[in-house]
């Protein structure tokens, strides 16, 4: 019974959202506001039940983790943003979060996104026994990377063989990347539509499995 009601509600709001494709209307606006409101409400309740209550309030009121009062108060300082005269206090929790996040993330981020990628780009163009397509792939990768980097080098005018031709090749490399991304984006957007159609034709109308 409840499942059926849920499916009908879901179908109604799916159609309400898609009604925007014809033109904006009050039903669409209702669905849009509900999505935002329910998501926010759900998140607030979830965080209260999974974090604030078990990890802050219960240990404090049990009296065995009074030190949690300090981060609790620090978190409350965020709310001072709403009182202009003491809004500056909100900078302390922000500074704390930023500082710790930077400290924790910086070495690992450097390793994950810079050093590992540099390492992966430093491959031999050719070695004995390497198949031709791998040699070709390495050449494309290394010279493509260099050309794209030249395009983003703005301290010199893009003229001449190195900077001029290099930046032109760089544009082509970047455009190829954008093309691949566009193709995947189309696939992604259609996939979302497919998910909704499967819901409408399957769960709601039972026309497909």
């Amino acid at each position: 019974m409840y499942d059926t009601i849920g499916i009908w509600v879901g179908a109604f709001f799916t159609l309400a959202i898609y009604s925007f494709l014809y033109k904006e209307n009050p039903v669409y606006r209702l669905a849009e506001h509900l999505v935002v409101g329910i998501s926010l409400g759900y998140t607030m309740v979830l965080i209260y039940n999974s974090v604030i209550l078990p990890k802050l309030l219960e240990p404090i009121f049990a009296g065995n983790h009074l030190i949690l009062i300090i981060p609790g108060l620090l978190g409350l300082l965020y709310i001072t943003r709403f009182i202009p005269s003491i809004a500056w206090l909100s900078r302390y929790p922000i500074a704390f979060i930023m500082g710790t996040a930077m400290g924790v993330a910086f070495p690992l981020t450097m390793k994950a996104y810079v050093l590992r990628q540099l390492e992966a780009a430093m491959v031999p163009l050719y070695s004995s026994g390497m198949p031709w397509y791998e040699v070709f792939g390495n050449i494309v990768m290394i010279f493509g990377t260099l050309a794209a980097l030249i395009y983003f080098f703005f301290s010199k005018p893009h003229k001449g063989l190195f900077f001029g031709t290099g930046s032109k090749i760089g544009i082509w490399v970047i455009m190829l990347g954008f093309g691949a991304t566009f193709g995947f984006t189309v696939m992604g957007r259609i996939s979302l539509l497919i998910g909704r159609i499967q819901y409408l034709l399957g769960d709601w109308l039972h026309l497909i499995e």
């Binding site: 993330a105 690992l108 994950a112 984006t185």
Partner: peptide, 21 residues
């Protein structure tokens, strides 16, 4: 960042088409 690089945990991605490239 936090699992692969710190302890070498093998990671696999299942990402949306938009992000795949």
């Amino acid at each position: 960042t936090y699992a692969r690089e710190k302890i070498g945990l093998p990671i696999a991605f299942g990402v949306t088409g938009v992000m795949a490239t």
